[in-house]
């Protein structure tokens, strides 16, 4: 979903950077305060960030005959909310811009708005919608991860369409064209990402249910009922 360096006019680079920076600033402040609250959050933050690192390094082939990568931001946005996720996403995108020439410093703002901010925000909305319903928490994790992934690419298509409206049909026509390239490719990848992150979440609540509960991601009751359906002996261990 990277917009390559040089492929976005500087005016648009500036616009997306200006949108991205406030998220980054609030994210850093939130990150510091959460670390001061409890050091036990650090390992969980590590796992959430690590999955963004791993998944965004994997270029997977898709039905459209091109390759793309999942984003892995769903886990982080559920556990640590959108601002902190923006910071982690920024670190990954900065690494790729500096060393891999995937995206660049001028387009980093735009890439952040799609992968580190927009996708996770919509995923967070899905989480908020499903959180207090009877929906199984693994299904919730699946939906959040898959939606955060696919929306990232929808936003990239939108960013490019705004910068490069088609001669005939304008923004909408070029959005459709970019959407076909980015978002359609992403559909199978986001399903896989949803499955993998749901599985990872199972292991997290098996090992550290109290952390997820303390962060208020899910209630104790929800976690216990989820553990009962996916593991044999949760009760006596907890």
């Amino acid at each position: 979903m990277h917009i390559m360096e040089g492929f976005l006019p500087w005016q648009w680079c500036l616009v997306w950077w200006l949108i991205a920076i406030p998220f980054l600033v609030v994210g850093v402040i939130e990150l510091r305060s959460i670390m001061r609250q409890d050091r036990e959050y650090l390992p969980l933050l590590g796992v959430c960030g690590a999955f963004i690192f791993i998944l965004s390094a994997l270029k997977l082939p898709s039905v459209t005959g091109s390759c793309s990568h999942p984003t892995g931001t769903g886990l982080s946005v559920m556990c640590f909310k959108p601002y902190i996720t923006a910071v982690i996403g920024f670190i990954v995108l900065l690494f790729q811009a500096l060393l891999l020439a995937h995206g660049g410093l001028s387009t980093l703002g735009a890439n952040m708005v799609s992968m580190a901010i927009g996708g996770p925000l919509v995923g967070y909305g899905v989480y908020k919608l499903l959180k207090n319903t009877s929906v199984n928490i693994y299904v919730t994790v699946f939906c959040v991860a898959a939606v955060a992934d696919i929306v990232t690419y929808v936003i990239t298509s939108f960013e490019l369409a705004l910068a490069y409206p088609a001669a005939t049909g304008g923004v909408l026509a070029s959005f459709t064209a970019f959407f076909a390239i980015f978002a359609i490719t992403q559909v199978p990848l986001s399903i896989i990402e949803g499955l993998v992150l749901a599985l990872v979440f199972k292991y997290i609540i098996q090992l550290k249910p109290e952390l997820i509960e303390k962060l208020g991601v899910f209630s104790k009751k929800q976690i216990e009922s989820a553990l009962r359906t996916t593991t044999g002996v949760p009760e006596e261990k907890v």
């Binding site: 979903m1 990277h2 917009i3 390559m4 360096e5 040089g6 492929f7 500087w10 680079c13 270029k59 898709s62 459209t64 091109s66 390759c67 793309s68 811009a97 500096l98 060393l99 020439a101 995937h102 660049g104 410093l105 001028s106 990239t156 490019l160 490069y164 088609a166 001669a167 070029s174 064209a177 970019f178 390239i181 980015f182 490719t185």
Partner: peptide, 28 residues
């Protein structure tokens, strides 16, 4: 990569070859 396919689409829309898009900020 879909990034490259996207870049080609930009070239097609603007009518400029892919090579004419040079980095705004020099990069490795």
């Amino acid at each position: 990569g879909s990034d490259d396919v996207g870049s080609e689409k930009i070239a097609e829309l603007t009518g400029k070859p892919v090579e004419s898009f040079t980095p705004l900020i020099p990069q490795y």
